[in-house]
Design a protein around this nucleic acid. Structure first.
Lengths: 274, 274
DNA sequence: CGGAACCTTGAGGACGGTCAAAACAGGTGG
DNA sequence: CCACCTGTTTTGACCGTCCTCAAGGTTCCG
């Protein structure tokens, strides 16, 4: 069992931040809006706590009041989900390094969905009140956080479309494209080959399908030479093909408001080049 | 043809606002956060223009840069939608009086979806920069607008679940519940009987179904005594029944952060009473 | 009165679900 | 190092929900 490490961190303003857990955060926000040095320092000095959690751990639980802190992923993956009364699960979004886990409840009184760790997760729990305060009093920071939330909402809309109007093949292709592009934008991968830490059942829960049908659909995509996969790896063999199959247009990710970490093979997607 | 009326309105600060088009707006925001008199005055004096548009008119068009103004519904209904390459349409949300039509793009550079008028619509186009400014510099107003956007996002999540994990009968029941409750919250209806200005095709586009199946499903709900409908009217005959069928839990509407306009037969829903 | 949406109904088919079992993988403990 | 356990993937057979196509009816409006 992994030891749960927990420590409080409040670096002095002016510190070089390259080694603090909030480095990812302030870099992300700087991409979203033009932060002054002052803003960056204020972000970096937000009171926070770092912890490590295991897969399946609940970060947010539907029906509860938001916790006094707001999680930020330092490393690992997480997902949001909701349940029907009959117990069917729908994953409504995936989250990577740099994503905030509870920004969606920053000003709400009750959690309307749950958030769970998909992999081992390193989280920076940022003090909620301090975050609210900085969001409302520092215009540039507020704007950056606001963009963050708006992009999340845009992704939900795309998922409504994905689940509502695309067939199984397109749904799977679409979600694979989204994961690949977002992973590259987050600097996690630099090629078409990436590790997908989701079971086929989770993939089904994210696309409104059953695990059985996900399995058959993936096999069909492999058979058609669009992707390759072994174990927990996925390789996109034919990027244009999978993009076409999945009706994937990255517009909804608003990558123009994010600077990609580096120029990889998928970088054409960012700029809309074809 | 209805004349397009357009006039600029910038009332003097301190005016009684009960007659301006932004009255709906400032009342709504006051429900979302505690605004000072100053805030209310600032909201009421936002530069804006009122216009009337016909059904099917586009308010926002996917792929375009956001307009220099941001629409607010004074009366009527509108919907957001996205299309697949094959031309299939998915409606991703519905909007009523008091809802903002382009808050979702307030800080984004490109529209990722379209917004269209469902009925005759009276809109207040609020100056975008002024709105951005007030959102970032007046904490209480910023908070109120933020809540507004977060509730929209919560509704998207519920729709992903609705379309992804519920069968046709539950999907239709669910959307009828949502419309009824939101209409009551917006003070548009005061009973279980309300006017539904959507065609069955639009209802299908909102639930990921075909119009044919929507038709059969509605007939089944009528046959089972859950609802009644004639022409464009819908009556909920058995509120608890339809709520159960639709797996409807109003938590996701965050009505605790909205004061209902009045106490109607559906008011039990607001307070969570059963 | 005529046309255009919209609603309604039927017949047939397909996509994806359900159920069940077997194969496989990875981790644990003996 | 092997046996075992649990969770995951894979496969097959069957079935049902919802889609497709198509035609007839209704309502509303010019």
């Amino acid at each position: 069992m992994l030891a749960i490490e927990r420590y409080v961190c409040a670096p002095a303003i002016g510190d070089s931040m390259s080694s603090t857990p909030l480095e990812v955060f302030s870099r992300r926000l700087s991409q979203r809006a033009a932060l002054s040095e002052d803003d960056v320092a204020a972000v970096a000095s937000l009171p926070h706590t770092v912890r490590y959690v295991h897969p399946t751990t609940y970060i947010v639980r539907e029906g509860e009041a938001p916790k006094p802190y707001c999680g930020l992923i330092i490393s690992g993956m997480a997902f949001r989900h909701k349940l029907t009364v009959t117990g069917a699960r729908q994953i409504v979004s995936l989250h990577l390094r740099g994503d905030m886990l509870d920004l969606q409840h920053l000003f709400l009184n009750v959690a309307d969905h749950s958030v769970q760790a998909l992999t081992e997760l390193q989280i920076a729990d940022i003090d909620r009140e301090a975050l609210q305060h900085i969001a409302l009093t520092r215009p540039a920071v507020g704007r950056a956080l606001w963009v963050e939330g708006l992009v999340d909402a845009s992704i939900y809309r795309e998922w409504v479309l994905n689940v509502g109007r695309r067939d199984a093949r397109a749904r799977i292709a679409h979600i694979l494209c989204e994961i690949a592009v977002r992973m590259q934008a987050a600097g996690i991968i630099d090629a078409e080959r990436f590790q997908l830490p989701m079971t086929q059942e989770q993939l089904g829960d994210a696309t409104g399908l059953t695990s059985v049908h996900v399995n058959r659909t993936i096999k069909a995509l492999v058979a058609d030479g669009l992707i390759e996969h072994g174990g927990r790896w996925i390789s996109i063999r034919d990027w244009n093909g999978i993009r076409r199959e999945g009706d994937f247009n990255p517009l909804y990710l608003h990558l123009d408001q994010v600077a990609p970490y580096f120029d990889g093979p998928l970088s054409a997607v960012f700029s809309g080049r074809d």
